[in-house]
């Protein structure tokens, strides 16, 4: 199930969303949302994160960019899980906010250390809001299923 979803998300993120947002810098990171939701409970599965990131890198021809970002996000998530309980929707959203902000900032910094591309705040913000909406919707479902 996870890998089917992963394939769908990878295709969406690398083709359809790039077409809508114009650049892969501003595309909502649905892969991060998927990894976060699948790892927020239980032990953190780094392998899935690395494979997802690596495949996305292959599709976008950015070897190492997404893979390292996703591993970093999972490290941060694992740290948060050890220190805090993520039992409610607000705590889930706050945790995602921290993880996503760190991951995106890291990836943008990494990108800017190599290339220059004008950052447009509005598409960036829209992309991030889409991500948050996805996590909110599926996170609520996840928590409901648990209860």
């Amino acid at each position: 199930m996870f890998y089917l979803l992963l394939a769908l998300v990878l295709f969406l993120q690398s083709s359809v969303l790039v077409g809508i947002f114009g650049s892969y810098l501003f595309v909502p990171d649905l892969l991060l949302s998927l990894l976060f939701l699948s790892n927020v409970r239980g032990p953190t599965n780094y392998a899935r994160g690395f494979i997802g990131g690596f495949l996305l890198d292959v599709l976008l021809d950015t070897l190492g960019w997404h893979a390292s970002g996703k591993l970093l996000a999972l490290f941060v998530l694992s740290f948060i899980k050890r220190k805090f309980f993520i039992e409610t929707l607000p705590s889930l959203m706050v945790a995602y906010l921290i993880v996503a902000l760190l991951e995106h900032s890291y990836r943008l910094l990494l990108f800017r250390s190599k290339f220059y591309y004008p950052l447009e705040p509005i598409p960036l913000l829209i992309g991030f809001l889409v991500e948050l909406a996805v996590v909110y919707y599926f996170g609520r479902k996840l928590l409901k299923n648990e209860t």
Partner: peptide
Amino acid sequence: KERFFYFSLFLLSVFAYLSNLSS
């Protein structure tokens, strides 16, 4: 050990991206 392995993988990924390893 697992965490150390993935941390190495993380560093390798960063290196791969910065040094354009695929070329």
